[in-house]
Write a protein that binds this DNA or RNA. Structure first.
Lengths: 227, 227
DNA sequence: CACGCCCTTGACGCATCCCTGACGCCCAGG
DNA sequence: CCTGGGCGTCAGGGATGCGTCAAGGGCGTG
């Protein structure tokens, strides 16, 4: 059964959504605010999130970013705001679709189906949670790095950067791509961020940080993790 | 470079879309009708399809179904029809998103980015990105060249040139085309750029750079990659 | 309130890359 | 035989990108 997390503070709309989705054999969870939403998302691992941007406790875009920090679950945004700036912000933060209220329930359900279909089609990559090199070991699920016999402490930003590189082993990852994934599109172009954080990662992971063996830079293009 | 196929019969709208996307460094193809669209999609393998439903020769939903018969390329539907029935039909046929005209260009570009981002995140693209010759191996997706047992380091400009030639194997690529793709229209005509960079590529890839076997020059016309 | 951690930002030296001009070769045509 | 255009080669100068360091600010914690 496909599980949907509905994040919406209007009880009436929640009721309507829940009824419609249960009739279509979806499993539905509901959260009235952002904090509850993040907690439920982590606990129940829904297959789709339907998110209202106008929440009482926090900005909807921040909810998107928080989710994207650890999950790739499809996010379908509902919002009363029709301005294109809001849409762009939500989509660039990681949302998959944006529907403005009032909406047709048929259309919403079709967009929901489209989002679910996409995730079902992707064969769910072979979930390698351990990345082992001669110098260190990365446990992606536990978010842990061990170097020799000691644990390495990474800051959240350092971890995000490392995670992206490590999940594309051997491949070149563009500076723009890294910046967009970690800092969002608004900060694309700030290549100095990358320089600072790559230096920190090397200092923590490489035996000889000034001659990196794993975190390779390709001048003018991006960075690459060599396994 | 991300390649977009625009399927739209209104020349004015095509022009606006192409200009906007080229400014954002997308590679754009355009098709005025469904038949051309299907042919170009098969030949050029775009990364995204932007599809108008109101085509002169066939129903847009049939175009979606035809594409979905063999491809999972993201399809972004543009349409003047606002009815939810049309949206549902298109989405259920396999479209990924549906934007009604008139739309904000910013929003459309954000939805385009969202669609591209999704496909980039899913690893394990079945696409064959390896170009193998007796002398060297090129991995287009990883942006990596291996010659014998050693990695070859290419500068961004060298890589762009090589990428264009290699993705048109055996075919002649015009000097003007190469210059426009790598340096932009303003520098078309500076054929000396090509001479310098082709020489560098040959020095890095060919066994005998002065008698090239793979990077062939066609005097007065352009260059060709022999696989 | 003080402290520490983390993110951001600027400055600086250095390596590399891009562009440019000069020169010589080959080939075709006069 | 001479000439001119197209091409390959080389070397240097300016520009850009990268690594590094350090300082400042925001935020939560003790």
């Amino acid at each position: 059964m496909t599980r949907v997390l509905v994040v919406e503070d209007d009880p009436q709309l929640v009721r309507a959504l829940v009824i419609n989705m249960q009739a279509r054999r979806y499993g539905v969870d509901a959260a009235p605010d952002g904090a509850t939403a993040l907690r439920l998302a982590a606990a129940h691992r829904p297959d789709v999130v339907m998110l209202d941007l106008g929440l009482p406790d926090m900005d909807g875009v921040d909810v998107i970013r928080a989710l994207r920090g650890w999950s790739r679950v499809p996010i379908l945004v509902l919002s009363a705001r029709q301005g294109s700036a809001e849409k762009v912000a939500a989509l660039d933060a990681g949302a998959d679709d944006y529907v403005t209220k009032p909406f047709s329930m048929d259309e919403l359900m079709a967009r929901l189906r489209a989002a679910v279909r996409r995730t079902e089609e992707t064969p769910l990559a072979p979930e390698t949670t351990l990345v082992v090199t001669a110098g260190f070991t990365i446990d992606l699920r536990a978010k842990k790095v061990v170097r020799g016999t000691r644990d390495v402490r990474l800051t959240p930003t350092e971890w995000q950067l490392l995670e992206i590189l490590v999940t594309h082993p051997g491949r070149l990852v563009t500076q723009k791509h890294l910046l967009q994934e970690v800092w969002g599109v608004s900060r694309a172009g700030k290549t100095n961020y990358l320089r600072v954080y790559m230096a920190q990662l090397r200092r923590k992971l490489e035996a000889d940080p000034s001659h990196p063996r794993y975190l390779i830079t390709e001048p003018g293009m991006g960075y690459r993790f060599e396994g």
